Amino acid sequence: MNTPGRPWREAVRLGELMNASVGDRLHVHGNTVGQPDRAGEIIEVRGPEGGPPFVVRFDDGHTGLVFPGPDAVVEPRTGEGVPTER
């Protein structure tokens, strides 16, 4: 399982998979000079055991199917009402 906030490239190097849950955020870093980062809420997980691809509603309103690359980070959801593991 991917450690929260760990970049995809490092997770793959360590033999981890990028997993997510509905409500987590996907942050995709711009990979060329001048290209802004993109972020959005994961609204559907289509891969086995929380793996990609993910359906993401980006902050600009665009919704799309995403296969995260090495420039992506899954940020776990936080806030009130979110269950925590015990």
Rank of each mutant, 00 (worst) to 15 (best):
M1V: 03
P4Y: 05
R6G: 02
P7V: 12
W8F: 15
R9A: 14
E10C: 04
A11F: 02
A11W: 00
L14P: 01
L14I: 03
L14M: 12
G15E: 03
G15M: 07
L17I: 07
M18A: 13
M18G: 14
M18I: 10
A20F: 01
G23L: 01
G23Q: 09
G23W: 04
D24S: 09
D24F: 02
L26M: 11
H29C: 04
H29F: 15
N31K: 06
N31Y: 08
V33F: 07
G34F: 14
Q35D: 14
P36F: 05
P36W: 02
P36K: 03
R38G: 08
G40Q: 11
I43C: 00
E44K: 15
E44R: 13
P48E: 15
P48D: 05
P48W: 06
G50A: 04
P53E: 02
F54N: 01
F58C: 05
D59R: 03
D60N: 15
D60M: 09
H62Y: 14
H62C: 02
T63G: 01
T63Y: 00
V66Y: 04
V66F: 02
F67S: 10
F67D: 14
F67T: 13
F67M: 13
P68G: 09
A72Y: 03
A72M: 08
A72T: 04
V74E: 11
V74C: 14
E75R: 15
P76T: 13
R77K: 12
T78S: 13
E80P: 11
E80I: 06
P83S: 01
P83D: 00
T84G: 07
T84W: 09
T84S: 12
T84Y: 10
